[in-house]
Amino acid sequence: MDKFAKTNPAWALVIALVVVAFLWLVLAPWPTELEAAIGRKRVFLNALLGGITLGALYFLVASGFTLIFGLLRIVNLAHGSLFLLGGYIGYEVTNYTGSWFLAFPIVFVAVGLVGLAMQRFIFAYMEGEELRQTLVSIGLSVVLADVMLWYWGGQSYTTLAPGFLRGPMELPLISSINTTSGEAIFIRYPSVRIWILIAAIVIGVAMWLVLNRTSLGMLIRAGVDDREMLAASGVRIQLVFLAVFVFGAGLAGMAGVVGGTFQSLSPGEDTRFLLASLVVVIVGGMGSIVGAAIGALVIGIAEQMGLVYAPTYSVVFTFLIMAAVLAFRPQGFLGAGR
């Protein structure tokens, strides 16, 4: 950080100014001129929080995708199908048992088992054939999409969060000042989204800790850097591969439960979240957990801000970000140069 400021003083100043301006926008009550120019602060804060929480959801999906790619070099285009499958199973479990929390472990295991079958019985037989694995994953996504359509039909489902998470919660962020009483009005936001954001942060930090502070993580990172060396060192690499694939699949499934609570589940959501994962990892850098977090945040905020301030072109923002990253930094923000 210091080094950057010393070598690029101009850029450091610009970044610092942007950060200060952003913090002011978030924390301070907006003067009426500003509200007249770009709309009410509540709208801005809602879009921002919507973007951050959507980013949390994207992170949950994309982190599994990027982990699987980083270690196994499999571009699993059936990842979105695992997301949707997890969402449907979570809906069924919540309805059947009445417990939203129970849905998570059950979905993790169930979708993890699907992932286990995919890796163990299909992908493991074509190791190193990247294109073929990708084609197979496309075939699997077509098949899974139709099987799910067959069973769950075309209607949309929304999983209900438990009662105490359903209402809004007040955040320590000023929305506006009551002009008559002078009291500060604080922003209110659906509490389930806040809790899911916290959960995503916890999962992200836990993944980072496991990857960077444990011997299993060392194995996985060594595998990302140099697979041949790891295979030659006698580690049972296939087991590590399998574990990572199952974990990534299970995570996608759990994200499906979250997605079913946030928004709704219907055919086509699999493609939507697959694409979100693709864009997130292209922007953040393939194979990097921190990159996935940054990419998810950027894409989530861009999407929500776009929806609020330029609804016609919100998709274009996301795409422009991706195109700009590809043009100037093809390996993504945190991707390894190749």
């Binding site: 571009v75 990247e130 294109l131 694409l275 693709l278 864009v279 292209i282 795409f319 590809l326």
Partner: peptide, 11 residues
Amino acid sequence: GIYTIMITLAI
């Protein structure tokens, strides 16, 4: 290589 398929899908 494999990135092409991802990028073109996203575009």
